[in-house]
């Protein structure tokens, strides 16, 4: 599988995505080197300045450099979304493949009903409930995201498992005495992993936007620590006079989502299990 992923001949979108993501990572995690300014320290004298050499993207209403805050904010947003997504991905794959393997049994029915309920339940409302009960923090937000987001992965994994189950090679493995665990790990997982992983990269974009949206509502990371969503929320009041203060965070959200979508596209071409052998 690794060999297939690192096949540079195949598509340009994948390489473009990787390069873009690398640049974003260097910028975001090299924030302290790139910018000498402090992301949190306020400076009333320099509030709401237009872009200049000193502040390439201008300053916000507390006089903080927007570029610096965007770069530091990326650390929060990227780490949290990748962690939340990975957790959701693992849960989703496991639940989906188990449900698929035991298709038609009580276990499958129970798992699928849980999935239906979670799908029907609005994600935002759940996040607000958790925030109300346990307080607002990025960590709580991540738990909510992982708890809800695995559902779509599980559905996908299950449908792939059902498809694989109808193939002769699966029946052959069953007849040859493979245990349930072997069936999941050796027969179902390799075929499900590709599509689910690709789907996950597409979902990452949505996830970043959702985390930003929740932060925008004040449910995620708390001020003054920078985060793309909360920065956008912050800039809302002064948007009419100084539109540039939204430029930094929104540009980075767009570029990150784009990078992951490009990678997802490339992965889909590479990991297609029904691809012809040449």
């Amino acid at each position: 599988m690794l060999k297939k992923i690192i096949n540079f001949k195949k598509s340009t979108s994948f390489i473009a995505g990787i390069i873009l993501l690398c640049i974003l990572f260097i910028l975001i995690f090299g924030a302290s080197i790139i910018s000498p300014l402090d992301p949190v320290e306020q400076n009333a004298a320099e509030r709401l300045q237009k872009p200049s050499l000193e502040h390439p993207l201008g300053t916000d209403r507390f006089g903080r450099d927007i570029l610096t805050r965007t770069l530091y904010g990326g650390q929060n947003t990227l780490i949290s979304s990748v962690v939340a997504l990975s957790v959701a991905l693992l849960i989703g794959l496991f639940v989906g493949l188990v449900a698929g393997l035991f298709h038609g049994t009580l276990l499958d029915a129970v798992l699928m009903r849980i999935i239906d309920v979670l799908l029907a339940f609005p994600f935002m409302v759940l996040a607000m409930i958790v925030a109300g009960l346990f307080g607002t923090s990025l960590f709580h937000l991540l738990i909510v995201v992982a708890a809800v987001w695995w559902v779509s992965f599980a559905r996908l994994a299950r449908s792939i498992a059902l498809q694989v189950k109808s193939e002769t090679s699966f029946a052959a493995a069953q007849i040859l005495g493979a245990s349930h665990l072997t069936l999941i790990l050796k027969e179902l997982l390799p075929k499900a992993a590709g599509p689910v992983l690709v789907f996950a990269t597409f979902e990452l974009g949505t996830l970043i936007l959702s985390i930003s949206a929740l932060s925008f509502l004040g449910l995620g990371s708390q001020p003054p620590s920078p985060e793309w969503g909360s920065m956008l929320a912050d800039g809302r009041d002064h948007f009419m006079q100084t539109p540039h203060i939204l430029l930094g965070p929104s540009l980075f959200v767009i570029l990150t989502v784009l990078a992951f979508n490009l990678i997802g596209e490339g992965l889909r071409d590479r990991l297609d299990p029904y691809e012809k052998f040449e």
């Binding site: 002769t168 090679s169 007849i175 040859l176």
Partner: peptide, 16 residues
């Protein structure tokens, strides 16, 4: 499965 075995019609499809 040690005692009873099956060979399928789809020779290629039954192999990984």
């Amino acid at each position: 499965s040690k005692h009873i075995q099956l060979v399928f019609q789809e020779a290629r499809g039954s192999l990984h």
